[in-house]
């Protein structure tokens, strides 16, 4: 596969590169909870995608404007009624799943609006997280940098948990990728993986 990405961005955000590999050039993208818009900008620059970010936070919105990407201020939790069914090639939820309240409803909206959904999240089943729980504390790590009392992450899950949710939502998983510090994890992914990526579609 040819890669036209700037090395610095790949080094900084291996998760961006992992998502980009799944995106067909020129695709129509909806990035839910797009943050400062850097993923969408990266995909625009490297995959020539057309897309919109959806973001609720004012500061993030301003950063999106600075990044020159399309962004719509909207609360994901209220649904995606501004977007028609099947109107995007990919609907992305990048490291946002764990902070959503109506998680199941959002997955269903992704399945409605997009031909495919892409979700990435920090794997709560990662062994270091498990160790911290065994030692008597909620995990704090690079991917989960918050304390239990100030975290926006209210719906943490493991690979197994997410796959069960997909089953429940009639989502067919097309591809899974598990990473640890920028490297792929194939052995005991639910134990060894820090970040999980899923590509899925609606089961007809």
């Amino acid at each position: 596969m040819t890669d036209t990405t700037a090395p610095s961005t790949i080094a900084l955000r291996p998760d961006f590169a992992a998502i980009a590999e799944w995106i067909k050039p020129g695709a129509k993208i909806l990035d839910l909870g797009c943050g400062d818009g850097s993923l969408l900008r990266y995909l625009r620059d490297t995959r020539n995608v057309f897309g919109y970010g959806v973001e609720i936070d004012d500061d993030n919105l301003l950063s999106c404007f600075c990044n020159g990407i399309n962004v719509i201020q909207n609360d994901l939790e209220t649904g995606l009624s501004s977007f028609e069914s099947d109107s995007f090639d990919y609907v992305i939820l990048s490291q946002t799943l764990q902070a959503t309240r109506h998680t199941e409803g959002i997955i269903q909206e992704m399945l409605r609006v997009g031909k495919e959904g892409i979700v990435s999240f920090p794997n709560f089943g990662y062994w270091k997280n498990r160790m911290q729980v065994i030692s008597g504390h909620m995990p704090v790590s690079k991917n989960l940098p918050y304390h239990w009392y100030d975290t926006p992450n209210i719906h943490l899950c493991t690979l197994g948990d997410f796959e069960a949710l997909c089953q429940q939502c009639d989502a067919r998983i097309l591809e899974r990728r598990v990473m640890n510090g920028g490297h792929p994890v194939n052995f005991l992914p639910n134990l060894m993986g820090m970040l999980a990526f899923y590509r899925f579609e609606r089961r007809e």
Binding site: Y52, D58, L61, N70, I72, Q73, S82, E84, S87
Partner: peptide
């Protein structure tokens, strides 16, 4: 959005 036109909204 329906016409896939570049738009930002705040």
């Amino acid at each position: 959005l329906d016409n896939k036109i570049n738009v930002s909204y705040a």
